Computed example of a mutant assay.
Amino acid sequence: MSPLLLTGVAVAPVVVVLALLALRVPSLVAGTAGLVAALVGAVTVFRPDDDEVATAAVQLGPTVLEVALILLGGVLLATALSATGSRDHIARWLERIGSGGDRVPAILLLVFGLTPFMESVTGFGLGVVITAPLLVRMGLSPVKAVVVGLLGLVLVPWGSLGPGTLVAAELGGQDVDALGYWSALLSLPVFVVSMMTVLVVV
């Protein structure tokens, strides 16, 4: 079987999900379609035997569980902030900071303070889910709020990239602490560019 075909089948689930999301299909449907594409490709092309499936489950099972628990914690945090009114309280506090007519300090505090914190305790971009509505309340358009919120994620190599670092270290046989350290260190130029970009956007 040609390597090109194997590569195409391997990336098909990602392509399916991205295409459906671009067509504004609900995320649950898009994710399910991606899962189906992955299963069909595995069964029809890669055809792993029972031993390979069992070995993969044993090796990757703990990592998958850890990532799932991190995601669950982030979703619960976002839900709790909304249900308890904490998000509105934070928004009012930020609005008072920017009440003098200059909203930039409050937005920078939100983007490079609250967003990295929320992302560090959740991961997988959920920091933006929490802070984007606050940025909209600060006067940014929804598109700008998402863009600015995403730029705040680059300050958290141990947040949004934490589970990715964990998975990469385990699959590559590397020390997770060393990999995380160098990821953070090499991100310094990105920090500077992201801060300048946020100032331009807002």
Rank of each mutant, 00 (worst) to 15 (best):
R96Q: 11
M196L: 12
Q174C: 02
A56H: 02
E95S: 12
T55S: 05
R92L: 11
A33Q: 05
A91Q: 09
G159A: 11
L110F: 01
L110M: 10
L171R: 10
G34Q: 01
V15N: 01
T55W: 07
P116G: 11
F117H: 05
V198Q: 02
V129L: 12
S120H: 04
D177S: 07
F191Y: 15
V193N: 10
D175F: 02
L21D: 06
V190Y: 03
T84W: 11
T122V: 03
G127F: 04
V45Y: 11
A19T: 13
V198C: 04
S82L: 15
P163W: 00
L150W: 09
S141R: 09
I70K: 01
P116N: 07
L6A: 15
W182V: 13
L71A: 07
V9R: 10
P163E: 01
G180E: 13
L110R: 03
E95I: 13
L199E: 05
L76G: 06
S82E: 15
M196E: 02
A57V: 09
A33M: 01
T32P: 00
S160A: 00
V121G: 05
T32R: 02
L60R: 02
V154Y: 06
V14A: 15
R137P: 06
V143T: 13
G41Q: 06
V200I: 03
L110V: 04
L108C: 01
V154D: 11
V58Y: 03
A30R: 08
L153K: 05
I97S: 08
M1A: 12
A30S: 14
A42G: 15
S187K: 01
V53G: 02
L76K: 09
A19R: 11
A12S: 10
T63I: 10
V75D: 02
L69H: 12
A91S: 14
R24L: 08
P48F: 03
Y181T: 08
F191H: 12
L110Q: 05
V202H: 12
V129P: 06
H89I: 14
S187N: 04
R137Q: 12
A56E: 03
V198F: 06
V190F: 02
T7G: 11
